[in-house]
């Protein structure tokens, strides 16, 4: 069996990064909070850069619980969308230029989201990584963890359920 020659690394990286950038930068609220994503292969890490407007308790000070929830939810949705789009990004079926121009795919919708606040969020950068526990055609279940200085000391974790966007196949019956 003849193996096709692998694509040059730059081409693959460029396509993956362009798709991720379009996905993240297309959402105003992600820009408002200043959330970025670090990519290693298909693994994503959410990055929440500390800013004064994220403070919930000015006396401690601590990150607002709502910001923590939003950060975890955003990381979940982007990770889930990324996993869902990955085969099309790899095959080149996704047109990254159209994506960058704002033609975003439909994103999963949150059904419910439950956050455990384990310790207060300190006034510094935070990181989050999500795991897709189950990705069905209609529903998905995602777990996400967030930490600051130590990977082992989570300051919050969450579990959420999402409604997947309809595929062309499911729309036609």
């Amino acid at each position: 069996m003849a193996r096709t020659r692998p694509e040059p690394m730059q081409v693959v990286k460029q396509r993956r990064d362009a798709a991720l950038k379009a996905l993240v930068e297309g959402v105003p609220y992600i820009r408002f909070l200043g959330i970025e994503f670090d990519r290693r292969g298909d693994e994503l890490t959410g990055l929440l850069k500390f800013d004064d407007k994220l403070i919930g308790n000015p006396f401690l000070p601590a990150i607002h619980g709502g910001v923590t929830a939003a950060f975890l939810e955003t990381t979940s949705i982007i990770t889930l969308s990324w996993a869902y789009l990955w085969p099309d990004i790899e095959s080149g079926a996704i047109d990254t230029e159209k994506l960058a121009a704002g033609d975003l795919p439909r994103l999963p919708k949150t059904i419910d989201f439950t956050v455990d606040y384990l310790r207060s969020g300190l006034p510094r950068d935070a990181y989050a990584r999500a795991t897709v526990c189950r990705a069905g055609r209609r529903y998905a279940s995602v777990r996400v963890e967030a930490w600051q200085d130590n990977r082992d000391k989570l300051f919050a974790q969450a579990n959420g359920h999402f409604l997947m966007p309809p595929t062309d196949a499911s729309r036609s019956g």
């Binding site: 609220y29 992600i30 919930g56 709502g66 929830a69 955003t74 994103l107």
Partner: peptide, 20 residues
């Protein structure tokens, strides 16, 4: 605070912040 640029719907995270 828009979460879906196609429809202009507010992001769930902003609703979470308000709920909290």
């Amino acid at each position: 605070l828009i979460g879906d640029p196609k429809t202009g719907v507010i992001h769930g995270g902003a609703v979470s912040a308000m709920m909290d």
